[in-house]
Nucleic acid binder design. Structure first.
Length: 279
DNA sequence: AGTGTATCCTGCAGGC
DNA sequence: TGCCTGCAGGATACAC
């Protein structure tokens, strides 16, 4: 997906554009992105007013009056696009799944080519239960290096897999896992518990730096991701290793490698990120 | 506990 | 040009 920086960018865009809007009509064009009958989903939203927009992990949360919220997980190709007037021509979403039409005339479209994304209307309690199963927010003020070290020390899983596990740390996906590990000089297959305190501190720092820089750039557009305004994210040009196998490492000129495990590609510089077996 | 595999779905790039 | 295969920012469920 869209990982944390992409979700955050969308949230910031929506916050300034849809808070205060009243949902007049709900159109469900692809019911498989919902997890309940579309009639029930629509009925819960109709007539509600948007009071806030927040983010948790990779989820965009649209808070409504009446203690309900719409939780959007963008999956691989999901987009949340805001239009103040109905779009025409190339501006029109290609795979609209859900449309919220506002009383004032604007609309919010959840568009998702592959439909791995989900749109759910939950009560505050239901969402809290869900949120409790997610790990800490890496950009939280209270997320300390020691927390990361302690959590890592309990797992033998390869650190790349560890970072992708939303129950352990929230919001990191394949792109930013690759970048954070590169900056920290850690091999993606390094067992989590083998990361020493210095390396854990470096990883803590690199995770936060990468995520913050990516947010500043409006996220990473590889292909599908767009901001709420339809713009591309600009962080792709900053990527050191993700998607760069065969290219020289910008630090040491060693060829960046790709290795597949847990069914996902991992990108790394074998010199900057030596495996413990090599050292 | 951790890993590999498959699943949901569509589009696109590359090989022939 | 066309057909086929593999691969893609995610999440989950299963067998081993």
């Amino acid at each position: 997906m869209p990982e944390l920086p992409e979700a955050e960018t969308i949230v910031r865009g929506l916050r300034s554009s849809i808070v205060g809007e009243r949902i007049e009509r709900v159109e469900v064009l692809k019911a498989d992105v919902l997890r309940e009958p579309k009639r029930r989903f629509s009925a819960k939203l109709r007539g509600r007013t948007i009071v806030a927009v927040e983010r948790r992990a990779k989820n965009v949360l649209i808070l409504l009056d009446g203690k309900r919220l719409v939780a959007v997980n963008l999956g691989m190709t999901g987009r949340l696009l805001h239009f103040s007037t109905p779009p025409h021509g190339s501006r029109r979403p290609g795979h609209p799944a859900v449309r919220l039409r506002f009383a004032a005339g604007g609309l919010l479209v959840f568009d998702d080519t592959r439909r791995f994304g989900t749109v759910e209307c939950l009560s505050a309690d239901q969402w809290r239960e869900r949120s409790d199963r997610l790990g800490p927010e890496p950009l939280g003020d209270d997320y300390a290096s020691g927390d990361l070290l302690a959590a890592l020390s309990m797992s033998r899983s390869p650190v790349r897999s560890w970072l992708l596990d939303q129950r352990r740390i929230a919001g990191i996906g394949n792109i930013y896992a690759a970048e954070a590990l590169y900056l920290a000089g850690i091999h993606p297959k390094c067992p989590a518990r083998d990361i020493d305190p210095d390396r854990a501190a470096a990883l803590h720092q690199s995770i936060r730096t990468v995520l913050r820089d990516a947010i500043r750039a409006g996220g990473t557009t590889i292909r599908d991701y767009r901001t709420a305004e339809g713009a591309e994210g600009q962080y792709a040009r900053h990527l050191y290793v993700y998607g760069r196998e065969g290219e020289p490492c910008s630090r040491c000129d060693t060829t960046v490698e790709k290795v597949v495990f847990s069914n996902r590609s991992a990108f790394f510089c074998p010199r900057c990120q030596p495996s413990s077996a090599d050292t």
